[in-house]
């Protein structure tokens, strides 16, 4: 009855096996579902419900509690701009305005071509590198309004398949919360945090 392909089901069972109790796998499985379809669909939630023996209503209840499960249309690139206190003090709102203007997408909306969504977010733990921005949850710190625009143009023109934090920091970032050490090759594909065990991360060659 499963709607997911066998290899995905295998992944799902591997995720469930990480926990003493099935239900604990709900959040990772929701990420997997969102990764598969680009957003969290009703079918995705039904599938997760089957896997952990919950009703779809229970799964929806959990998913809707958290901000990172996107039940509405969301772009290939989710641009999140922090406007919490530290970023606000250093111009986060101007960065948001610049990015809205550059992409033509208002806060909380997705562009018709489905390429990009823009949202303001609460503190993402980059206060030392304010103002901070995330693309598919990969971080760029010390972003000026002008660099925010450049970042968007880079995304829309280059259409990188895998989004890499270090690359973006290199090109568009400034002040950092702390030194980041070496360049990582693992990044995000689509609006889901890139994490190996969940099958949502990808290496670039």
């Amino acid at each position: 009855m499963s709607r997911w392909p066998p290899e995905t089901m295998e992944r799902a069972h591997a995720i469930i096996a990480r926990y003493p109790e099935k239900r604990s796998a709900v959040m990772p499985l929701l990420y997997l579902a969102q990764h598969l379809e680009g957003r969290l669909t009703d079918d995705g939630m039904r599938q997760v419900a089957d896997l952990v023996d919950l009703t779809p209503a229970q799964v929806q209840s959990v998913a809707s509690f958290y901000t990172m499960y996107k039940r509405d249309e969301v772009g290939t690139y989710l641009v999140s701009v922090c406007t919490s206190i530290s970023c606000m003090l250093l111009g986060g709102e101007d960065v948001l305005a610049a990015i809205e203007d550059e992409t033509g997408v208002r806060d909380g909306e997705t562009r018709a071509d489905g390429l990009v969504s823009v949202e303001h977010v609460e503190c993402i733990g980059a206060c030392g590198g304010a103002p901070a921005v995330q693309v598919n949850y990969e971080l760029v710190e010390g972003v000026t309004p002008e660099n925010g625009r450049k970042l968007c143009r880079w995304l829309l023109d280059g259409r990188p398949r895998v989004v890499l934090g270090d690359e973006m920091q290199e090109l568009f970032g400034g002040q950092r919360s702390f030194d980041w050490g070496p360049v990582e090759r693992e990044g995000a594909v689509g609006p889901v945090p890139a994490f190996g065990p969940y099958g949502t991360a990808e290496e670039i060659r």
Binding site: D42, L54, T55, P56, A57, Q60, S61, S64, F65
Partner: peptide, 22 residues
């Protein structure tokens, strides 16, 4: 034992609701 209505969303936006089509 039939949880067909549940809280949805959170905080000030919390509501009781069923799942679409169920």
């Amino acid at each position: 034992g039939d949880p067909l209505i549940e809280f949805k969303d959170r905080g000030n936006g919390t509501q009781v609701l069923t799942f679409p089509g169920e």
